[in-house]
Computed example of a mutant assay.
Amino acid sequence: MGRIFKERTSVDEALRLFLESISPLRHTEEVPLEACAGRVLAETIVSGRDVPHYRRAAMDGYSVRASDTPGASPANPVLLQLSDSIEEGTTMWIHTGAALPEGADAVVMVEDTVTVGDMVEIRAQVYPGRNVGQVGEDIKREELIFKECHFLRPCDAAVLASLGLDRVKVFRKPVIAVIPTGDELISREITREVPPPGMVLETNGLMATLYVEKWRGVSRCTGIVPDRPESIRKAVETNKDADMILILGGTSVGKRDHAPEVVESMGKLLVHGVGIIPGKPTALGIIDRTPVVCLPGYPVAGLVALYFFVRPGIRKLGSIPEVPEIVLRKRLAAKISSKIGYVNFIRVVFEGDRVRPLMGAGAGVLSSVARADGYVLVPEHVEGYEEGQEVDVFLIE
C-alpha cells in the first residue's frame, strides 16, 4: 500500500493551519441575565450609575456622629441617647445595608456597645466613614466594568444586575454540524440491543455532540451517513450553513475511507495525517470558509481530535477566551512507553499521590477514557518516561 499518508503534520503546525482558516463569528444576540453565564460579551459595559447609590451601614450597630465618640473605650464608655434622628449626643440603631441617617457619619458595631434603657454605651471610638459604605464604593458612574469578549460568569451577571440591566448582548454560539459516517453503524434510536457481528452502535456522534455543547457550541447531529462519497458530499452540502462541520469516521486510507477526499473535492484539505497517537488519521480542511474536521472512527482517536482541534476551533469561532487547563504535577507509578516522532496521548489513573498509565488501552477502547482520571502528553521528541518521573497530568473533562 505504501505510505499511509502523503505526509504527517505536527500537532502544532496542524493546529496553526486550522485556526488560521477560522474567522471569529460577529453575529450577536441579546439574552436575559438569567441565561448569560457561559456566554461571551459582545459589547463593552460602562456603568451608568453609582453602586451603592447611597451611604450604607457596613454592619449591624449604631449610627453616630464620629465627633461624639472621642476616647470611648470599655473602661470609659460614652453615653448617647437613643433617638429617631441624629444630632449631637444621639444615636440610632441601623441594620447592615441600611441607608445611613442624615447627620451620621459612622457606625459603631453592636459588639462595641451596651444598651441600657434608652441610652447606649459606646465602647469604641470611631472616625468619620468607619463601618460605612460610601456612594460608589463598589462601582462608580462611568466606570468600565467589562470589555467586549469578556467570558460571563454568574458573579458577573449579579454585577450587571446591580447596574439595573436585565439583558446583555453576547456573541452567538457557533453551530457545529456532527456527521457520523459508516456502514457498520446502527443508530441507538433503532435499537439498543447487541448488534450482529461486524456492526456497532453509533456512539461517536453522542460523544462529539456532548463535547460541543460543553465547549459552548450548539450541536446539530445528523443521521448516520453511508460510506459513499456522494452520501458524505450531500451531508456536507446540507450542513454548509453550520459554522463548523465534523465528519466522524472514514478518515484513513481504506476502501471505505472517503471523508478527506470529499473535503478536498469540495474545498481545501489543509492536513491529512497528524503527528499524534491515537488520532493520526485526523484530517482538517475548509469548504467555502466553513472549517471541517474529519475525526477518526476509533473512539479514543476521535476524542483526541476533539480535544486538539475541535475545542480550540470552537473557542476561536465564538471568541471564547482561553481558560488555563487544570494541570497536576504527579510522579509515575509505572513507566510510560511512547513512539518517537508523535505526541502520545497516554491515559492515566490516580494511585494515591501518583498516576499509573492504563495498559492495553488502544484507540478503539473507549472505556479506557471513562476509567481514566486524566492524560499525559509525551512530546514527539521524547521516548517515554521512567517510573518515578514527574509529569504533567491533564484532567479529562
Score class of each variant (00 low, 15 high):
residue 78 V to Q: 04
residue 322 E to K: 12
residue 237 E to Y: 10
residue 189 E to L: 15
residue 136 G to K: 08
residue 313 G to I: 10
residue 260 P to E: 02
residue 111 E to K: 10
residue 168 V to M: 07
residue 393 V to G: 00
residue 354 R to D: 06
residue 89 G to F: 00
residue 252 S to N: 04
residue 106 A to D: 02
residue 113 T to I: 10
residue 67 S to K: 07
residue 113 T to A: 08
residue 132 V to H: 02
residue 83 S to T: 05
residue 98 A to V: 04
residue 65 R to V: 03
residue 270 L to V: 03
residue 84 D to H: 06
residue 331 R to I: 09
residue 89 G to N: 02
residue 196 P to V: 12
residue 227 D to W: 01
residue 33 L to C: 09
residue 118 D to R: 14
residue 336 I to C: 05
residue 72 A to P: 00
residue 202 E to L: 10
residue 244 M to Y: 06
residue 83 S to N: 07
residue 105 D to C: 02
residue 320 I to L: 09
residue 140 K to M: 13
residue 197 P to N: 03
residue 298 Y to P: 11
residue 149 C to P: 14
residue 269 L to Y: 02
residue 357 P to H: 03
residue 217 G to T: 05
residue 217 G to H: 02
residue 214 K to T: 08
residue 69 T to D: 01
residue 7 E to S: 15
residue 359 M to Q: 15
residue 395 L to D: 07
residue 352 G to W: 07
residue 217 G to P: 05
residue 382 V to M: 09
residue 86 I to Y: 00
residue 368 S to A: 11
residue 64 V to T: 03
residue 61 G to L: 07
residue 116 V to H: 14
residue 232 I to V: 13
residue 249 G to W: 00
residue 44 T to L: 08
residue 347 R to F: 03
residue 177 A to P: 02
residue 295 L to V: 00
residue 324 P to S: 06
residue 59 M to V: 15
residue 57 A to Y: 04
residue 374 G to W: 04
residue 12 D to Q: 14
residue 72 A to I: 00
residue 75 A to V: 13
residue 175 V to G: 08
residue 209 T to V: 12
residue 285 G to K: 06
residue 17 L to E: 05
residue 305 A to W: 08
residue 61 G to W: 06
residue 255 K to Q: 12
residue 157 A to W: 00
residue 29 E to D: 01
